[in-house]
Design a protein around this nucleic acid. Structure first.
Lengths: 218, 218
DNA sequence: CTTCATTTGCACAGTGCTGTGCAATCTCGT
DNA sequence: ACGAGATTGCACAGCACTGTGCAAATGAAG
């Protein structure tokens, strides 16, 4: 994106963005992002060429929209972090009971599981940005806070400190996404199962967990 | 390892191996493997050069012991799989109660957590051998079998099918290793906490889980 | 001190990726 | 059908890594 053409391209798109109609470049950019999500989910080390081809476009075109691979992945993770944070927050807003809070936010995050999965997958490779872990900390801390309250009130029972339990929460979610991916778990019931599992992992009796989640997915 | 020198080197080592005293090459080879474990734990994409330097040796020397990067990683994962399988099997041998089985094997695997962590870390990057997942399946299936029995007998309570629960088990273990690594969890108590968490995640009441594990770590 | 195994240093070819430049081409709206 | 915006095709430089060959240095053990 050093070419004069390409900066001009951006300016043009800017203009189109103020009006409601997305330019051709806009829809392509969107398509690239979407495909990149899928492709990076399959292989977190996917090259620009793989992504471009998967998007039905030439590598050079991708560089027309994103100055570098890092920028592309960056935009993607930004979007994902925003989505996850929003889902997580929406799930727990105005709820006092920690168990219900945990269940609701689990169900909410489950709706955008793919975004979350990308983040975890990228975060656990040391190379591709430990910055992801940083950007996810607000979410993790909110989660840890719920767990802390639950442990304090005795709603949750676990020998683990809240923050460690948050790690477990995160990885468990990830495990269940993989399970769905590998057809070990039906996608429809997966959300509820995930929520129940989160609760029991936190130390809520299985019966109470099942009951609570059943109530929430009325 | 195409050089004539190097095949000769191997023959020499073979000879030394039959006698009890390890040759210089043997101890270096061992050192390289150990350092590689640590290095790959830190960065699963660590290059041959990184590993060599960390082992206090030149890249060329590593190629003297392992014909390719894949061979090095292969030997490492072979060892790790063997260790994990052994620990897992030792933990559950002669035990009938699924809960105790699960707790014991968790405690046993925890002892060699680093090897296990390497395997999980390598397995979840699509590039570096999905073969690891394959080689781990015996262990996972043994684990799933315990879970299946527990669910059947009502010792465990979970909406998840056994195999999915095994995924959760695996990732939870991983999460706790990370927690220890990040100093969120004291290393001494980590094993017991892990065992308790495994049990509660499977749906065992927290009180019973704590009690059982306490009994085991007499 | 000699000998043999081992390690080193360097040079090299090969591969696959990133990012860039530029001219040609396509595809819209108007 | 015109022209701006977007995409393509190729060519290139650069980088990091893998594996290999060979001659020289090092080390240990006799």
């Amino acid at each position: 994106m050093t070419t004069g053409q390409e900066v001009a391209r951006r300016a043009g798109r800017m203009a189109a963005m103020t009006t409601g109609n997305p330019s051709r470049a806009d829809v392509n950019r969107r398509r690239i992002l979407d495909v990149a999500l899928a492709e990076l989910l399959r292989d977190p080390d996917a090259s620009m060429d793989q992504i471009a081809r998967a998007a039905g476009v030439v590598r050079r075109t991708v560089y027309g929209h994103f100055p570098s691979r890092e920028a592309l992945v960056g935009t993607l993770t930004d979007e994902a972090v925003a989505a996850v944070a929003a889902a997580h927050a929406a799930g727990r807003e105005g709820v006092v009971d920690p168990a219900e809070s945990l269940a609701r936010s689990t169900l909410a995050v489950w709706e955008i599981a793919d975004r979350y999965r990308l983040l975890v997958a990228l975060a656990q490779r040391s190379v591709t940005m430990q910055g992801i872990r940083e950007r996810l900390t607000p979410v993790r801390e909110a989660c840890a806070e719920i767990l802390r309250r639950g442990l304090e009130q005795g709603v949750f029972a676990s020998p683990l400190p809240p923050y460690a339990l948050a790690y477990v929460h995160e990885q468990t979610l990830f495990a269940l996404m993989e399970a769905v991916n590998d057809d070990l778990l039906a996608a429809e019931e997966a959300g509820s199962s995930a929520a129940v599992t989160m609760l029991t992992a936190a130390g809520v009796p299985a019966s109470r967990a099942t009951e609570l989640v059943a109530k929430l997915s009325d």
